[in-house]
Amino acid sequence: MDLFWEESSGAVAPEYRYAKQFHLWTDSKTIHLSRKIMKNGKLQLEETKDISPVQYEKWMNRFLDMGISQFPYEEIPEEQITGISYNFVEFQFGSTKSKFYYRLEEIQQPEWVQKKEIIKFIERMKP
C-alpha cells in the first residue's frame, strides 16, 4: 500500500506560502507515516513514524469507504497555469491505482465533496 498527498499554496507572498506532504506506506514488516509541513516558507514539521497495524486498518477501511480506490489514475493536467499549483492524492493498493489532481479553488465546488473528504482525512492523520 502506498498513499501520497501533496498540496501547496502556489505562488503567493512568502508570509502565506505553505506546503504539505503526507506519505503512508507499508514495507514487508512495517507501516510508516511521513509528514512534512511548511508554513510561511519555514519548515514546521518533518517526521516519519511507524504506525500500528490497528491504526492502519482503521485508516484503510475509512479510505476504502470513502472510495479512494475508485478514481481513475490521472496524468498531470497538460494546461499549466503560471502561479497555480497542481496538488494531488495518489493511492496504490496491490494492483489498484488511483490518482487525482486538484487546484485549491476546485475543492470548494459541490462536485468535489468526496475528494475534499479524502484530503481532509489525510490531513488529520497523525502517528
Rank of each mutant, 00 (worst) to 15 (best):
A13R: 13
A13G: 02
P14L: 12
Y16G: 07
Y16L: 13
Y16D: 13
R17N: 08
R17T: 15
R17S: 05
R17L: 01
R17A: 01
Y18S: 08
Y18T: 07
Y18D: 05
Y18C: 06
K20V: 15
K20E: 13
K20G: 00
Q21A: 12
F22S: 09
F22A: 06
F22D: 04
F22R: 02
L24S: 08
L24V: 03
W25E: 05
T26G: 12
T26H: 01
T26C: 02
T26S: 12
D27W: 08
D27Q: 06
S28W: 08
S28V: 10
S28A: 12
S28D: 14
K29T: 10
K29V: 06
T30V: 11
I31H: 11
H32M: 09
L33C: 03
S34E: 12
R35Q: 12
R35A: 11
R35D: 02
R35E: 10
K36C: 09
I37T: 05
I37C: 00
M38W: 10
M38P: 01
M38S: 12
K39F: 04
K39Q: 12
K39E: 15
G41Q: 14
K42A: 10
K42I: 02
L43C: 07
L45E: 14
L45D: 02
L45H: 06
L45M: 09
E46Q: 14
E47P: 01
E47C: 10
E47S: 13
E47M: 14
E47I: 07
E47L: 11
T48P: 02
K49N: 13
K49W: 01
D50P: 00
D50L: 07
D50V: 10
I51D: 05
S52I: 04
S52H: 02
P53C: 00
P53V: 05
P53F: 08
P53S: 11
V54G: 01
V54S: 09
Q55K: 12
Q55D: 15
E57Y: 00
E57I: 05
K58S: 12
K58P: 02
W59K: 02
M60K: 13
M60G: 03
N61I: 04
N61S: 06
R62G: 03
F63K: 04
F63T: 00
F63R: 06
F63A: 06
D65A: 15
M66A: 11
G67L: 02
I68G: 07
I68R: 06
S69T: 05
S69I: 04
S69H: 13
Q70P: 00
Q70I: 00
Q70T: 14
Q70K: 12
P72E: 14
P72Y: 04
Y73G: 00
Y73K: 15
Y73E: 14
E74C: 07
E74R: 03
E74Y: 05
E74Q: 15
E75Y: 09
I76F: 12
I76V: 10
E78K: 15
E78R: 09
E79G: 07
E79H: 05
I81T: 13
I81R: 15
T82C: 01
T82D: 14
T82H: 13
G83Q: 06
I84V: 15
I84F: 10
I84S: 08
S85M: 06
Y86P: 00
